[in-house]
């Protein structure tokens, strides 16, 4: 996959993206050569645990990595035929907020606390759409109504702290959608919210991207959230994409032992009290050089070869089209039933 040319049909093509932090003795390899395509209007889920590189790779796409701490070592990020990594900061600013936008986990820290939300909404419209002040305000009201903020006109002069968490996230979504971007990246957009508010926000995002044909990259640690949102999922581990498949295929027939492990380790509300099967051990230290597969030490299917050579992300044997897995010894892909579940039913 990594050597294939960018798909001309794709909205976004990421190729061999590699990001490191630090320098000298301590270099953290946060993203280790990932490649994927995103079709226009597609919702892609990126799942993985803390430190797997899911946020860092997306910040790299947005060109929002902290400088000089982070370095994009290699790769390309092609949005509509244009490599974003080649652009100057000034050129990038013209694209960000216009063709692509991002929503973060904590709207309290991503909204400006000393500006009323009106200014934060109109700013993006005046910058990218060259709207005049009054036009921008009208559009801001429309956007707030679109994201379900009641009495939108009366709330324009309010500051972020005057909104609840869910309402703040709605404001963030309104800002992100202001210029009708083709690509929206949402990094844990509902993690800080209560579950009933999460349901509201997810429903809102689902509707907004479907209606506008916006492509969405949804980054989350929550396998439940992506199950109902994404058409395709990338599973990341230690800076690599270790599995990539359609959502049904990934949950139905997971092939990478890490994906299998993740699905076995989460309790499900709709199932019995079977035992959780945790993944043993902890993720590797990314400041050390890892030879072979980074998951080898925690893997139930490990072979000698796994410790010598990193497996490429390739079509999984006897799987549906475009089910890619980076594993020398993938799981069989049986539908998972949590162990202990049958015994509970029998009791």
């Amino acid at each position: 996959m990594s050597r294939t040319a960018p798909d001309p049909e794709a909205l976004l093509s990421v190729r061999d993206l590699e990001v490191t932090f630090g320098s000298g003795d301590r270099v953290v390899h946060a993203v280790n050569g990932i490649s994927y395509d995103l079709a226009p209007g597609e919702t892609l889920g990126i799942v993985g645990e803390s430190g797997c590189g899911k946020s860092v790779s997306s910040l790299a796409i947005m060109r929002l990595l902290p400088k000089p701490a982070a370095r994009v070592r290699s790769g390309s990020v092609i949005l509509e035929g244009q490599d974003l990594l080649d652009l100057s900061d000034e050129e990038m600013r013209r694209i960000r907020g216009d063709q692509m936008a991002m929503i973060f986990q904590d709207p309290m820290t991503s909204l400006n606390p000393v500006l009323p939300i009106e200014r934060q909404l109109t700013e993006v419209l005046e910058t990218h759409r060259k709207l005049k002040r009054s036009g921008a305000v009208d559009r801001a009201v429309e956007l707030l109504e679109l994201v379900g903020i009641p009495a939108a006109k009366n709330r324009l002069r309010d500051y972020p702290h005057q909104f609840s968490g869910g309402m703040r996230q709605r404001v963030m979504i309104a800002i992100a959608l202001a210029c009708d971007p083709q690509l929206l990246i949402a990094d844990e957009p509902t993690t800080a919210l209560d579950v009933t508010i999460q349901a509201q926000i997810l429903e809102l995002m689902r509707t907004a991207v479907t209606e506008r044909g916006t492509a969405l990259i949804l980054i989350t640690h929550d396998l439940g959230v992506v199950a109902g949102m994404a058409q395709r999922i990338n599973v990341m581990y230690a800076g690599h994409i270790v599995e990539r498949a359609t959502t049904d295929e990934l949950y139905g027939r997971p092939r990478h032992p890490y994906t299998v492990g993740l699905l076995r380790s989460i309790p499900r509300l709709d199932e019995g009290r079977g035992e959780l099967v945790p993944i043993q051990g902890q993720p590797p230290d990314l400041s050390r050089q890892i030879i072979g597969c980074p998951f080898a030490d925690r893997c139930f299917n490990v072979l000698d070869r796994c410790r010598e050579e990193m497996p490429p992300l390739e079509q999984a044997p006897s799987a549906a089209d475009e089910h890619l897995v980076a594993c020398w010894n993938p799981a069989e892909g049986e539908r998972l039933v949590p162990s202990g579940f049958e015994s509970e039913l029998a009791s």
Partner: peptide, 15 residues
């Protein structure tokens, strides 16, 4: 409402 808002990690169930 609380129960129905909890996402379930299974696209077949979710849909």
């Amino acid at each position: 409402a609380l129960v129905s808002a909890v996402p379930i990690p299974d696209p077949k169930v979710e849909s």
